[in-house]
Write a protein that binds this DNA or RNA. Structure first.
Lengths: 274, 274
DNA sequence: TTGCTCCTCACGTCACGTGAGGTGGC
DNA sequence: TTGCTCCTCACGTCACGTGAGGTGGC
């Protein structure tokens, strides 16, 4: 048993605000050692300071309070450290993304909007190995990596070569609502099985306006905008998911500027494709 | 005049959610080119896509919408770029802080809590050049740098040497409410004038428990906790601001581990200081 | 008695997301 | 007629901050 402190003293010791301490009590994250039955005054024990400090550090890193709680109640040091490490990993990815966004913003401001070549064409149906999932945009990058890793593994396991470039279908609602069922696929010869969560699908034929985006994902909305402009001005947009084909993807190169993504916007072709 | 788009098409082009677009309309950040008087349907012009994209990039960087608006209405390219750059600078500082927090968390988890030597002593009054300000903790680091830069400049201008180490007073409410009037000071001989916002003050004498914190600001709460513990267990805490004296500060060294901050917690000395 | 610390509501913040319930055009 | 897109509320989110109004101990 250590010495007991008022909430104010404990606040000064830990640099957590009194309001925050009361909130942590309310949600059961950090209960004071005692509460006076008459006055309601909280009293903290000096031994609670280390716990409070861990909370503060994790909050400084924007870890949600739910996860902070999970860290504190972790049954073992290994579990606890795993949880913290996974958060640190997430933060590192976020830092990398932020840096990319900064670069991309500089780019957007400095460079004039470049012309994007748009082609109108028909795509035949394709038989593919696919993974379908409801995905929210926040988790999209992770999902994308996992999906293609899995599909590629299935192809590798059967020794077959892909029958075309990897691609994905994005319903309009994915962009509008930031959540929708996305389909990632790789064309594969019929003898390749689709194990586990994977399935065999036929991607239907479509007529589309396509543009090739060069470089990182971060900048893709510029190509989307250019493509959308052309469709609005020169074609009839129709329903149906947007398609991306990954001509050169992160699986092929480490050089972001070498990435090539073909973006297809469904249209009704009023003239035969040129 | 470009071509007009439904909110859904514009959303797909810009990768901004429909809800976000409607919200931007509500707050006057990005009004659609037209609104149908009968149906209320919004229509966007393709030429609005670049603006939407700048908004998206700035939001990706967590710029508050108020500031985004300020960027968009900037009267000149120079003003606009200055606003963006200042945000990027803030982000970079934040990234640095985050990295420091990560290090500090690793430290907290890996290292056993070290013993902190606590001394009880009396401090005499001191005549100082000071800057007082109501400061919120979020802006504290910037304020601290600015304050001491200004006070040091005043001393430099008069050619006088400091009559003691730089220090600051922090009322308890600064930690509890994350906002309070903070006083930064450097002892100075009486002939040094206090120009502008600066003033001459006498820092009153005090009896305190002091501990020296070694290393970065990030870890200071560990020393605060150790000091608070000793005070709670072995002394009588009294009212009055906490004092810090900057024995070795960022003005003296670039090496974080070399920093030395003396933290003083006001107490009532029950025995003569040893 | 005065000031200070502590208490509990109730409400605000920020940038949207989540339905509910309804309309208009093909 | 059915589906789809669009509309407007009203409310929820997250982690507290901001008062208001009041109590208890020195």
């Amino acid at each position: 048993m250590g010495t007991s402190l008022s909430i104010g003293d404990f606040s000064r010791m830990t640099h957590l605000s009194v309001k925050a301490l009361r909130y942590y009590h309310d949600i059961g994250l950090l209960a004071p050692a005692g509460v006076d039955a008459m006055t309601g005054y909280r009293s903290y024990d000096v031994d609670q300071a280390p716990v409070a400090q861990v909370i503060r550090r994790l909050r400084d890193l924007d870890m949600p309070l739910d996860e902070v709680k999970a860290v504190l109640v972790a049954p073992s040091v290994a579990t606890r450290n795993a949880r913290i490490t996974s958060h640190l990993d997430r933060m590192e990815r976020q830092l990398a993304e932020t840096e990319a966004t900064v670069r991309s913003l500089r780019h957007l401001i400095e460079e004039p909007p470049q012309q994007v070549a748009v082609e109108f064409l028909s795509r035949p149906a394709a038989s593919v190995i696919a993974l379908r999932d409801v995905v929210v945009t926040d988790e999209f990058v992770d999902w994308w990596m996992a999906a293609f890793t899995e599909i590629r593994a299935a192809l590798d396991a059967s020794g077959a070569a892909p029958a075309g470039p990897a691609g994905a279908l994005y319903p309009g609602t994915f962009f509008e609502l930031e959540k929708a069922e996305v389909t990632a696929f790789i064309p594969a010869p019929p003898e390749v099985p689709a194990p586990g969560r994977l399935e065999r699908l036929v991607i239907p034929p479509a007529e589309m306006a396509v543009a090739v985006h060069e470089g990182s994902f971060e900048d893709q909305d510029r190509t989307y905008a250019a493509l959308g402009r052309v469709v609005a001005e020169r074609a009839i947009g129709v329903d149906g998911p947007i398609r991306e084909y990954y001509r050169v993807s992160v699986f092929d190169t480490d050089d972001e500027t070498a990435l090539r993504t073909e973006i297809g916007w469904p249209v009704f072709l009023t003239a035969p494709p040129s």
